[in-house]
Amino acid sequence: MKVMFYVQHLLGIGHLVRASRVACALVSDGHAVTMVTGGIAVDGFPPAQIANVRLPALRSADDSFSGLADEHGREADDGYLADRKNALINAFDEIEPDCLIVEAFPFARRQMRFELLPLLDHVKAMPPGRRPMVVSSIRDILQPKSAKRDLATARLVQDYFDLVLVHGDGRFATLDETFSAARLILDKTAYTGMVAPDEAEPAAADRYDVIVSAGGGAVGENLLCTSLAARELTSLSTARWLIVTGPNLPDEAVLRLQSSASENVEIVRFRPDLATLLRQARVSVSQAGYNTVADVLRAQCASVLVPFAAHGEQEQTIRATRLEAAGLAISIRSHDLSPEGLARAIDAACGQDREYPASLLLDGAAATAGILRERNEAFKRDRSA
């Protein structure tokens, strides 16, 4: 099966990381995958074994997603957006996929309607015998929207999509809890389990006791600085600390962190083996994005979560609150973050008696490959009937 996988990251890199994990599982299952990416280039994503078509880059103009900018921070004008739309449709025509996966849309990434709706109309106009299966790939917890907005999203699913893959375990979170129109697309919805890293990854040569990470880094400076200030107040002040800033933290912020770090603190922008390092760590300090939480659940290490909650964002807070209620993490609201409070949370997390559900589904990437293979066979049979 030829798969075209569209993914657009605007602020962090979580969407790109999750999509890359799914794409690798599809390749391992024998599918030919091309990822079509439209964000700022990130080294290592997608991995080298995945074919990649890069659209002219777009990013969020700020952390409130108020507009779109090019890779140099300039406002993306109508001509730039038209070039992207045409490049996307041309890529689709060249790939000729049997399956088109669209990451996040229409549940999120409404900023990309200028190119995704024309693409979906292009697909819909194809002869039935040539039209690919169209799939939406979404995380388990969405940013809650109004009932009117959810209804509009459900109608787009009904009009354009054959399947919605929810990358979560329905026993932890169900789509209807953060998407009020879930009942309208129930027949098109399938849960894959969480897209966590491969359990069989080898142990890392390095070992750190405390790992502080900030996802892509664009909105993580306060967490990183507070973690450094909290270090001396914890019982792990002499242990080895690793600070992973993320590729999008500004250079001047990295320099500020480096100037305040002690000998037993290592500061890096990125570690491709972060998920493996977490398995050997005593505690993780991070935001509560999907991928970081998936990494922590696979690693089963102690966890302190400081969810990103600016501009009304609720998704990470919902996830962190649920994990804390399950006894699997300690959560601190971002407006309550202080060195003293974070130090107490780190020590408390290290002493927490955690019981991870043995049946929690974390192999969502491999499950996605199986679901798509099965659904595509049914789709082809229906198409030829």
Score class of each variant (00 low, 15 high):
residue 67 G to L: 06
residue 50 I to N: 00
residue 75 E to Q: 11
residue 110 R to V: 07
residue 64 S to D: 15
residue 54 R to H: 13
residue 75 E to V: 10
residue 62 D to A: 14
residue 70 D to M: 10
residue 77 D to R: 11
residue 105 F to C: 09
residue 113 R to A: 15
residue 61 A to W: 08
residue 63 D to P: 03
residue 59 R to E: 10
residue 133 M to N: 01
residue 86 N to A: 13
residue 69 A to W: 06
residue 79 G to F: 04
residue 63 D to L: 09
residue 49 Q to E: 13
residue 128 P to N: 05
residue 84 R to S: 02
residue 124 K to E: 14
residue 82 A to I: 09
residue 80 Y to T: 07
residue 50 I to Q: 04
residue 48 A to S: 15
residue 136 S to M: 07
residue 122 H to K: 09
residue 67 G to D: 08
residue 57 A to Q: 10
residue 87 A to T: 06
residue 73 G to Y: 01
residue 116 L to H: 00
residue 129 G to I: 08
residue 125 A to W: 07
residue 138 I to Y: 01
residue 48 A to G: 12
residue 102 V to Q: 03
residue 133 M to A: 04
residue 131 R to H: 09
residue 93 D to S: 09
residue 124 K to R: 07
residue 46 P to C: 04
residue 117 L to A: 02
residue 79 G to P: 03
residue 85 K to G: 10
residue 44 G to W: 01
residue 63 D to R: 10
residue 89 I to D: 03
residue 112 M to W: 05
residue 99 C to A: 11
residue 104 A to Q: 15
residue 126 M to L: 14
residue 43 D to V: 14
residue 124 K to H: 11
residue 89 I to S: 04
residue 43 D to N: 12
residue 77 D to T: 08
residue 131 R to G: 02
residue 70 D to S: 08
residue 52 N to I: 08
residue 102 V to P: 00
residue 81 L to P: 01
residue 90 N to G: 10
residue 51 A to P: 14
residue 137 S to A: 03
residue 68 L to V: 06
residue 101 I to L: 07
residue 50 I to F: 02
residue 56 P to A: 02
residue 77 D to E: 02
residue 51 A to R: 15
residue 50 I to M: 01
residue 120 L to I: 05
residue 62 D to Q: 07
residue 55 L to F: 01
residue 95 I to A: 07
residue 120 L to T: 03
residue 117 L to T: 06
residue 47 P to Y: 00
residue 132 P to F: 01
residue 128 P to S: 09
residue 133 M to Y: 00
residue 94 E to L: 12
residue 94 E to V: 11
residue 94 E to R: 12
residue 104 A to M: 15
residue 104 A to I: 15
residue 62 D to I: 13
residue 125 A to K: 05
residue 95 I to W: 03
residue 70 D to A: 05
residue 127 P to W: 03
residue 121 D to Q: 13
residue 49 Q to R: 12
residue 65 F to E: 00
